[in-house]
Nucleic acid binder design. Structure first.
Lengths: 341, 341
DNA sequence: CTGAAAGCGCTTACAG
DNA sequence: CTGAAAGCGCTTACAG
């Protein structure tokens, strides 16, 4: 391995000067700089990260810590996110460390990774409400950026989708079509995104003068099974049967489709369905019959902004300038229509 | 951040002794060791990787470099592999760096990553025939382990499936059922695994006294489209129509299924199909009708051996003891039967 | 504009 | 059984 000393020897300059020439400091003569650069290249010199890290406190590596391996239905999202981040950081000359925990002790994992001083910063995914990881990282003053964020918490850099707006879009569409009983299969109550969406749902319903009955909001996980179960319960109660259902993702919607079919209900004739987030691969979403109307948060689109935000955070930019909220996409397909009556 | 010096001060011992106590060297008194350990823990001491790396030449990080982002049909494999490796290495106290190139200059990427001295070793995936990366890594004496390997090349550590045996299993089954014309949609000609499988196919065909016509071996990529195209060509030629087709993976088999259906051929009545590698997610393989008979190389099962081999390589074990070939699984389902006539 | 020197946190011969 | 010292490869005040 070529070291700075080798380059110094080869150029007849000191290590100090070589280092500064290579880093492009202005106090080095232009011809000197060029000469050093040529020699360094010829010698195949690459700065040793460990040494640089030791003295400068930067390793050039950033990490993503996941609590557990992805489930099959999340594969698409996982790949887009992980592959996207790896490429986005590589483009910015940072190496990407992926750490998938077995879920046993997430904080200890972070602590070990951090203490080691190996990583310069983190991307956080799926923050929970009052997520302890966030407090931990803030406490240690470790740079990080969060995908998503908790409403009102402006202590960190984040890239988020406007979940409130996503719900408003869905309700506006359905209410505009004439639906009055609009149920909401909202997903996990512990997710800040779900919290924000429910608020948006309530606000939009109120704006249309529609009541939100307690039974209309059903929490659960993000699976098709949950969608099916919740739909079965909602549709069984004929007196209060909703004419439209908003689902927290397309997988949940698939569950709703199945149960609706089982009840002999046609979509969108008897029941309108709108979902957030395409968690199903494109192919499978297209297979849903009729094609599903969705508000969409594209993970792929989040990858570059996240890398960008983290890089800027590492460069010392103030947090207030590193908080981005993106409007959701809206893809109208064929699963929502006017109610029969 | 707590350093060795802090622990030394707190214990009243020297940095040297603390270091050796923590590393469990035998020349430190047991009570001393225990005391040091207690204090270190209390102080939340974690060794600084950069410093350790600088002096010891080890970073505690290993990497996987992929040439390009995965295609949707590979998502399942990608996730199992990447998540599996991350966990397998974490278990062995190594951090896992994932680098996904944009395919522009793979060797340069390796070179940069290596020169930086950031990674201790590599996992190589999908080696090509006479893969330049392998020569590059061998030249630099960088530890690495390959998933798969080129027959006859015993210069490196690898974990491989017995591809020759996989073909023999498939041919034995089909020939045993009475098939005489067995085609082989072998996949990419540039893959060592394909090379080995074709050899196995030829050997097994010969053993059963069956001729291998040139048209019987069709190369291509690994997609359903290739399966469909190749099957269409094979089935169109009625005079030489094969009664059985071996596919390089389940996706290719899906293409064959589709074309067979189009030709009004029933599987396995009119055409038997056997595939290697389940590249489709379980769910989708099960959806194939009839269920597909496969020889299977489980990526998930490769992850732990690969991590293990790399760790042992890093520890200096000789290469000859780090070459593992695993017998393929064989899952007989319902896509192969006696030919009609 | 250039160089000598200190130091980042650790490990490892080498003395005692 | 324990400690003083050198050194891994770099960066960065500090002098000239």
């Amino acid at each position: 391995m070529t070291t700075l000393r080798d380059v110094a020897k080869a150029t007849g300059l000191s290590v100090t000067t070589v280092s500064r020439a290579l880093r492009g400091f202005s106090d080095v003569t232009e011809p000197t700089r060029r000469h050093v650069e040529t020699v360094a290249r010829a010698l195949n010199y690459v700065p040793n990260q460990a040494a640089r890290k030791l003295v400068a406190g930067r390793s050039g590596m950033v990490g993503l810590v996941l609590e557990r391996p992805p489930q099959p239905f999340e594969y698409g999202h996982f790949v887009e996110f992980v592959a996207g981040l790896s490429q986005a950081f590589a483009k910015r000359d940072l190496d990407f460390v992926l750490h998938i925990s077995d879920g046993s002790n997430l904080l200890a994992t972070h602590q070990r990774l951090l203490g080691r001083g190996a990583l310069d910063g983190y991307v956080l995914l799926f923050p929970g409400i009052d997520d302890p990881r966030i407090d931990f990282l803030l406490e240690r003053a470790v740079p990080f950026v969060v995908h998503g964020h908790q409403g009102g918490d402006e202590r960190y850099a984040y890239f988020d989708t406007d979940n409130h707006a996503a719900s408003v879009i869905a309700v506006d569409l359905l209410a505009g079509l004439g639906h009055r009983r609009i149920a909401n299969l909202a997903g996990p109550a512990t997710w800040p995104s779900v919290e924000a969406r429910i608020q948006g749902y309530r606000d939009a319903m109120a704006a249309h003068g529609l009541a939100v009955e307690p039974r209309s909001i059903v929490h659960g996980d993000t699976s098709a099974a949950y969608g099916a179960q919740a739909a079965a319960a909602l549709l069984a109660d004929r007196a209060h049967r909703p004419s439209a259902i908003i689902c927290c993702n397309s997988l949940v919607a698939a569950g709703v489709y199945e149960v609706a079919r089982g009840h002999g209900l046609s979509i969108p004739g008897d029941l309108s369905v709108v979902a957030h987030d395409d968690v199903l691969p494109q192919v499978q979403t297209d297979l849903l019959d009729p094609p599903l109307t969705v508000t969409k948060l594209s993970l792929r689109d989040a990858v570059d902004p996240l890398a960008d935000l983290l890089v800027r955070r590492l460069a010392g930019e103030p947090i207030a300038s590193l908080q981005v909220t993106q409007a959701p996409d809206f893809i109208e397909r064929a699963s929502a229509a006017k109610p029969w009556r």
